[in-house]
């Protein structure tokens, strides 16, 4: 075999190293648009909702359009997929598995057909582009969802119930927690704003908690914890006036709740004074 010069060997090695960077790796890459959409459809009516899917990889991929419903976890406010909802069966597509060449895009039309007896209300769905996984110890699926807010046309009822409100009757810490559980029994999602007015003999303050970015979905519950900061001026009885405003019709839920703020140092001083007075009277009684 002909001996290769050191320069040639170095060049060959460098070429091999560079080739590693350009070697097409086994990847999954999907793009969808739009990422969020809304439709209002009559009961017994139908509409078509498009989803555009693009293969961003350098190889052909097989994509499957699917539909799932979602809800929002009541405490962490995170999205939960795979919820049961009759609306899933209303959304169909003739497109099954589609092969996409590198850079190729397709438009998948989802047909939404609402049964005739469907009551008005909101349904929360995801229109997915899912790529098939390969076999392996841990096979990996990937999918990208377009959030689809489907509303069956008709009267909208915005009704939120205050299921529970509680705070410690006696608070020993300066940051008191107020727990609120709301139940959206209406048929439309809303964006509640929580206004809490705290008042004591020494001070008053207004705390406004807006949660405009995460909708409070219809037929769901929501647990929230709010921190009420208290100062030495608030020692004693405090009144918390709660005002929850929600919905397009600006509805309100109001409730008052009271708590006693007794910080540990205050209690210590109180106990010392009490014991001192007690001792004083005992001593006085004995001397008399």
């Amino acid at each position: 075999m002909k001996h290769l010069s050191p320069l040639y060997q170095l060049s060959l090695g460098l070429l091999c190293v560079l080739a590693c960077f350009f070697y097409p790796q086994d990847t999954q890459a999907l793009s969808i648009t739009p990422a969020r959409q809304t439709a209002i459809v009559d009961a017994s009516g139908a509409t078509i909702v498009p989803l555009f899917i693009t293969n961003n990889t350098t190889k052909s991929i097989v994509v499957l359009p699917t539909v799932e419903a979602f809800t929002i976890e009541d405490t962490t406010q995170t999205i939960l997929w795979n919820k049961t909802d009759p609306a899933i069966s209303w959304v169909t597509t003739p497109v099954k598995k589609s092969q996409l060449d590198p850079g190729e895009s397709i438009q998948v039309n989802f047909t939404v057909t609402i049964p005739s007896s469907t009551p008005p209300g909101a349904h929360y769905l995801g229109l997915f582009a899912q790529e098939f996984s390969y076999d392996g110890q841990v096979a990996v699926n990937s999918r990208v969802a377009s959030l689809f807010f489907l509303h069956v046309a008709g009267p909208v009822y915005e009704t939120v119930q205050l299921e529970e409100i509680n705070t410690p009757h006696i608070s020993f810490t300066k940051n008191t927690q107020l727990n609120i559980r709301l139940n959206n029994i209406g048929n439309m999602h809303v964006f509640p704003t929580i206004d809490i007015k705290q008042r004591s003999l020494g001070s008053k303050q207004e705390l406004v908690f807006e949660e405009t970015h995460i909708p409070f979905l219809a037929k769901t519950q929501k647990n929230s914890i709010y921190t009420i900061p208290l100062t030495w001026k608030d020692i004693g009885k405090n009144t918390l006036a709660l005002d929850i405003e929600y919905g397009a019709t600006n509805k309100h839920i109001t409730r008052n709740i009271s708590l006693w703020y007794l910080p540990i140092p205050f209690i210590s001083v109180f106990i010392i004074i009490f014991i001192s007075i007690l001792l004083f009277f005992i001593k006085k009684t004995r001397s008399s």
Binding site: Q25, T27, P34, D135, A139
Partner: peptide
């Protein structure tokens, strides 16, 4: 609909 797009790439299948 919004004209927003979303792209997810995974560098492995398994």
């Amino acid at each position: 609909m919004e004209r927003e797009s979303l792209s997810l790439t995974l560098d492995k299948n398994a």
